[in-house]
Design a protein around this nucleic acid. Structure first.
Lengths: 152, 152
DNA sequence: CAGTATCCAGCTAGATACTG
DNA sequence: CAGTATCTAGCTGGATACTG
């Protein structure tokens, strides 16, 4: 064993009970669930909270969002997909669903601690996509250009 | 403007040319592409390199992997999906494809710098899935249990 | 408001067979 | 070895209509 290994690293090593590289591993299925644009976008939205300049964002906690707020922020999402994705996230303990018996009823979704930890990762991916969009677009032009000249 | 905003934050704000929350934004399409289990797993595998105890892992660079190595490590992937996913990653400038004219031909895939930056994020997601598998499983039992007792 | 239910077009992805 | 090509079952997800 290399003595450069920290205690934290050893703990992480020991923790490898699951391996998503294996088809039969439950974590493979979990990875599939959390992959996908809607999970990505919902989690990005929820952790950052709605656009509320009046709210105290400095508290740092994840703020709840209503169904309609989510549906507005995630342009193009269908009711079906939004509901379906939220349900699976609720089942997995990533978000909580709270029904307030007003008239009409108010439903809010909020990240759990588990969800918040995933939010940070998802947010980073979304930011990556936005930051490197230009690079990718440039590469695509080069790639497509080469493919075209190769078959005249 | 709040004067608590740092220079880094301001730079990040200014950089928002793309917004994946918008359906028409190109970054939404990019996000869809890089979502999905195969991209997730390929990028996780590539950056970490193949299982080679003899290799000097300390160099830190992404090491190339052969097509067959990838197909072996990503248990359950079909040829079609592997090839298709690798092509799209190549087109986007995330991996490079190198053909060595041996007999039979040898093809290696390697992360670009762009790909490596994404790898770190993907790797974290894969690790998250594996680390929190137990929590998720527990939540599911609770959720399914409640749903069952609610409709007797 | 926040869903549920249903129908269906279209894409995804697996199986299979063939090739330089 | 590293693909390409083809066929197709089935799932995804959008549109639409209805409800507590």
């Amino acid at each position: 064993m290399a003595r450069t290994t920290t205690a934290a690293q050893q703990k992480a090593q020991a923790k490898v009970e699951y391996d998503a590289f294996l088809a039969a591993c439950p974590s493979r299925e979990l990875l599939e669930r959390i992959s996908g644009k809607w999970v990505m976008l919902i989690l990005s939205a929820l952790g950052s909270g709605p656009y509320r300049p009046d709210a105290d964002c400095a508290t740092g906690g994840p703020r709840p969002m209503r169904y309609s707020e989510l549906s507005r922020q995630l342009a193009g999402v269908s009711q079906k997909m939004l509901t379906q994705t939220l349900r699976s996230l609720e089942r997995d303990g990533i978000v909580t669903r709270t029904v307030t018996p007003t008239v009409p009823v108010t439903v809010t979704y909020e990240l759990t601690d588990l969800g918040l930890s995933l939010h940070h990762l998802m947010r980073a991916i979304k930011t990556w996509a936005q930051t490197h969009m230009d690079d990718v677009l440039t590469h695509r032009e080069t790639y497509d250009g080469r493919a075209a000249t190769r078959s005249p």
